[in-house]
Structures are given as structure tokens and as C-alpha cells.
Simulated scan of single mutants.
Amino acid sequence: MTTEAIHVELVALYDGATPVRSRWSYRADHPYTVVAAFQTERDRWVEWVFSRDLLEAGLTESAGLGDVRFSPLEDRGLNMLVVEIESPEGYALLEVDHAAVADFLDATEALVPLGSESEHFDVEALIDELTRV
């Protein structure tokens, strides 16, 4: 089976100035989730998995109550998406170009329209994966 997927690389800003590479991915066979990986060291990436609905909401208003939160920000004529990620190991506030993330979300919607995720979700495959221990 061929997996339809979208991958983009974006540069985030940490602490307002330090560039951080990030990779954003979406797979049609995991239609509810988006994966964002942030480079923390030369060969180390930290992945965060969150709902596509959360990302969509965060483009227009503050969204998220847990470990991943999004909010739009306009500052000095720049439109950014603020990404807050938190874990027991630490906290980071990153800024990503709002238009680039919106374009990524549009590409995911072209692959799997919002509201049609259940048509692309393979429950049997998930059960197989969970019981293959």
C-alpha cells in the first residue's frame, strides 16, 4: 500500500531570534494527526504529535490546553504562528511563519478534506498494531 503523505521543512524562531529547523508531516493513513519534529542538536530531533484540528484552530485563535498550544501573532508586520511545547524535560516557545503553516494545512486538506478523516482511517490496521505485542 502506498501512503500518501506531505512533508515540509520550516524554520522556527526560538526565543525570538534563534533559528530552529522543523519538519512537519501529515499522512493520509493517520488522518487525524500531524507530526512536527524540531531539531535540538545536529543529529537529534524531537517529535510532537497533535491533532490536525488543533493546528487548524490555532491559526485563527489560541488553541490547546495540554503539551502543545498554538496561537496566531502579528508582530512588527510579520504574521507568525506561536507554537508552545511543554514536557517534563522542558518548555519551548517557537514562532513559525503563519502563511507557511497555513499552506501546509491546505495541502493536508487537499489530501484528506477536513471532516472526511474517518473515510481514511483504518481501524483494523490500528487494532492489528495494538495487538501485535
Rank of each mutant, 00 (worst) to 15 (best):
M1A: 13
T2R: 11
T2P: 12
E4S: 09
E4T: 10
A5V: 07
I6W: 11
I6V: 15
I6F: 10
H7W: 09
V8N: 11
V8T: 14
L10M: 13
V11E: 14
L13N: 06
Y14A: 15
Y14P: 00
D15W: 06
A17I: 11
A17Y: 10
T18S: 11
T18E: 12
P19W: 14
V20G: 07
R21A: 11
S22M: 13
S22Q: 09
R23H: 12
W24L: 12
W24R: 00
S25V: 05
Y26R: 00
R27G: 00
A28L: 05
D29H: 14
P31V: 06
Y32T: 01
V35D: 13
A36I: 09
A37E: 13
A37W: 01
T40W: 05
T40E: 06
T40R: 08
E41Q: 13
R42C: 02
D43H: 07
R44D: 06
R44A: 05
W45T: 08
W45R: 06
E47R: 05
W48S: 01
V49D: 02
V49E: 07
V49F: 03
S51M: 05
R52C: 06
L55E: 01
L55S: 02
E56T: 03
A57E: 12
G58L: 00
E61L: 06
S62P: 09
A63R: 04
A63M: 07
G64V: 13
G64A: 12
L65N: 15
V68P: 05
V68S: 03
R69Q: 15
F70W: 11
L73R: 14
L73H: 09
D75L: 08
R76A: 10
M80P: 01
M80V: 07
L81T: 10
L81Y: 03
V82W: 03
V82D: 07
V82Y: 07
I85E: 08
E86Y: 12
E86L: 14
S87P: 08
E89A: 14
G90K: 14
G90E: 11
Y91K: 09
Y91W: 11
Y91G: 02
L93K: 10
L94R: 04
L94M: 12
V96L: 14
V96A: 11
H98R: 15
V101A: 12
A102Q: 08
D103N: 15
L105N: 04
D106H: 12
D106M: 07
A107D: 06
T108H: 00
T108V: 05
T108C: 04
A110C: 03
L111Q: 08
V112P: 01
P113D: 06
P113N: 07
L114K: 04
E117W: 05
H120M: 10
H120A: 11
F121I: 04
F121M: 06
D122C: 13
E124C: 09
A125Y: 08
I127K: 07
D128E: 13
D128K: 12
L130G: 01
R132M: 03
R132W: 02
R132L: 02
V133L: 02
